[in-house]
Amino acid sequence: MSIINVNNLSKTYKIHEKQEGLKNTIKDLFNRKYVYKDAVNNLNFSIEKGEIVGLLGENGAGKTTTLKMLTGILYPTSGEVTVLNYIPTQRKREFLKKIAFVMGNKSEINWDLPAIDTFRYQKLVYQVSDELYKKNIDMLTEMLNVKHLLNTQMRRLSLGERMKMELINSFLYSPEVVFLDEPTIGLDLSSQLAIRKFLREYRAERKTTIIITSHYMDDIEETCDRVILLSKGSKIFDGAISEISRIYSSNKVLQLVFDQSINPYEFAKYGEILEFTDNTLKLMIDKEQYRSIVTGLINQNRNLIDISIINVPFKYIVNQIMVEGRIS
C-alpha cells in the first residue's frame, strides 16, 4: 500500500533578480525584476510502506523542495501530495507526530545544553511514553555508539557526534516516515559509515519508510532499495538500484596499476577515463572489447603490475545520467 502519493506536483519560485553595483541597487529599490523558476516540475511517484528511497539530483534539481512539500513546509504551486493519507500543508498534529525531517545543515538541538535535555523535551512534544522513550534512547544510543556523550554540551561535540544526536532526536518518537536531507554532509568517513549502518539496521528492525537525499552516492547505494533521479525539477528515472546498474551493463571498468607514473591520456583511446591517481587508472570500456584491450596492454609490456575488471560503479552511472539530464 502506498503511503506517499505525489501527483503532478510542481513548485515555482518567484525570485528577485538583483543587478550588481550601487547604481543598480538603488534603481532596484524602485523597479524590481522578478524571474520565475520551476524548482519542481510535474512530478509523479508513490512510495510503499517500509521502502528506503533515495532522491538524487544535482544541486538545484528540486530534491529538497520536494522534501519540503512532502513535509508540509512548502505549499505546492500545483498538484497534489498525500503522506500517510494526510495533506501535509494542513500540518495536523497527528500527522506531524508521525513524520521526522532531518536537515543535515540545520540543527534542532539546543547548542548550550547536553543532548539529553533536548531529548526529554522532544519526548514531551511528541508525547512519547516513558517506556518507549527509555527503550528508544537505549537502542539508538547503542546503535550510534554515543551513550557516553549524552550529558556533554552539544557545542563540545564533533560534527559527526552532533549529527548522530540529531538522528536520535528525530527517531526517538518512532516516526512512521523519515525524511533525511543530506544527513552525512561534511562528515568524515567513519561517521558516514556509522550513519549508513544505522539506517540499514533501523529499517530492518522497525520497517520505517525513509526518503533520503545525498550527494554521497555511497549513502544511496548502501541504504536504498530504490532511487528517483531528478533533473531540473523533473523525474528522469525511478526504479531499483539494480535496474539503474543494468542500464550500463554493456560497459565495464578496467582498473590498471603500473609500477611507475603514467600519462593517462595515452589510454583514452581504449575508453573513458574515470579516475586517475599517479600510477592507477580506471577506464570505462565496452564489455565486448575488454579481452582485446587487456591482451593488447600486456603485449605492449607497459609495466603493468595489476589488472582488474569490475562493474561500472553506481556513482559513475548516476553522474553520467545527471550530466546528460536523461537516460541514454
Binding site: 519540503k68 500540518r91 498534529r93 506531524l96 507526530k97 525531517f101 540545520k106 511528541y126
Partner: peptide, 12 residues
C-alpha cells in the same frame, strides 16, 4: 534565513 522550516513541522 529559512530556520522556520525546523519548527513549522513540530506538533506544537
Amino acid at each position: 534565513n529559512g530556520d522556520l522550516s525546523k519548527v513549522i513541522i513540530k506538533p506544537y
